[in-house]
């Protein structure tokens, strides 16, 4: 039982990070109907921003991690938001209205660009991410050890998801985002500035990816140019699993993938980890093609 609780804890902290990344995929898909494959690289850049800025920021606040940690996350979120908007402005916007496959391949190109640009300019070797979360044991028994890091990670992730929910449901720009996801043309006719709302969607998605990156690097402190690859892929699967285009679905999908991976690895074998995750995905898509929480709202237009 203790071991199971420990595994659940491991799975939840991993899953909440997947959930944050998955939200970025699903928001862009919900509005523009394409998968932003460069999202994993925005995540990677977020980790590098943290890596480079954390020592100076920690110094500035006299080593007080309770202030420095959130500041580092905020900075990474701001930088990645700008990056996300630039990606959209330079690579995706000129292709809007073109067949999705073209935008999709462009996104893969953007992703490869970041990977290789960082490998050649920053260097390919992994670097250690500084400790931003004070390391203590919150709970320690023979079977269950809960450190401060996973709790902070889960707490921050859920806090950000709640914030996102608030923005989408209760602000004007959030309403505009939802209008766009129903029907982009109709929204434009109603006087919504589509370009601005799309840019804002990229701001939100990229900011969440940056926060996810800082949390991820705090648990797994190795930062390198290819670090966005696997988490990005898993989060994409999570978004599809939960119903792509659906925000609670992405969050739920992330948690399911994280916990499933951990339990399969812990109780069966890591060899079957991806196989089981993808089998679940296939089964869900067989019986619910729109994903767990996905709706067919787009059809009603």
């Amino acid at each position: 039982m203790g071991e199971f609780l420990q595994q659940l804890m491991n799975g939840l902290s991993l899953g909440s990070i997947y959930a944050l990344i998955a939200l970025g995929y699903t928001m862009v898909y919900g509005i523009l109907r394409f998968i932003n494959f460069a999202h994993g690289e925005v995540f990677m850049v977020g980790a590098f921003v943290g890596l480079w800025s954390a020592p100076a920021i920690a110094d500035f606040f006299g080593g007080n991690l309770f202030i420095a940690g959130p500041v580092v996350i905020l900075l990474a979120m701001v930088v990645c938001s700008i990056l996300g908007v630039l990606n959209e402005r330079i690579a995706y916007r000129p292709l809007r209205g073109k067949p999705t496959i073209i935008v999709l391949i462009t996104a893969i190109g953007v992703s490869l660009f970041y990977q290789n640009f960082f490998q050649s300019v920053v260097g390919p070797e992994p670097r250690r991410f500084p400790d931003l979360i004070p390391q203590t044991r919150v709970l320690e028994t023979d079977y269950l050890i809960v450190g401060s890091t996973p709790l902070v990670v889960i707490g921050t992730a859920f806090g950000l998801m709640w914030l996102l929910r608030f923005v989408v449901l209760h602000t004007k720009v959030g309403t505009a985002m939802r209008a766009l996801s129903f029907n982009l043309q109709a929204a434009r006719l109603m006087g919504i500035n589509v370009d601005r709302v799309v840019a804002f969607t990229f701001v939100l998605g990229s900011a969440l990816a940056a926060a996810a990156a800082i949390l991820f690097a705090s648990i797994y402190p190795s930062v390198h140019p290819l670090m966005g690859l696997f988490p990005g892929l898993k989060a994409f699967v999570a978004a599809v699993l939960g119903g792509i285009g659906n925000l609670p679905g992405a969050a739920l999908g992330g948690l399911i993938i994280g916990v499933t991976e951990t339990l399969v690895t812990g109780y069966v074998s890591a060899t079957y980890r991806d196989a089981v995750a993808f089998t679940i995905l296939i089964l869900i898509l067989l019986f619910r093609p729109t994903g767990l929480l996905g709706s067919t709202a787009t059809e009603k237009v």
């Binding site: 420990q6 595994q7 491991n10 991993l14 991820f216 290819l226 988490p231 951990t262 890591a270």
Partner: peptide, 13 residues
């Protein structure tokens, strides 16, 4: 390429 090994390590424990 994996970064999370806590599941395996928990089982090992």
């Amino acid at each position: 390429g994996d970064a999370d090994f806590k599941a395996q390590l928990t089982a090992i424990r």
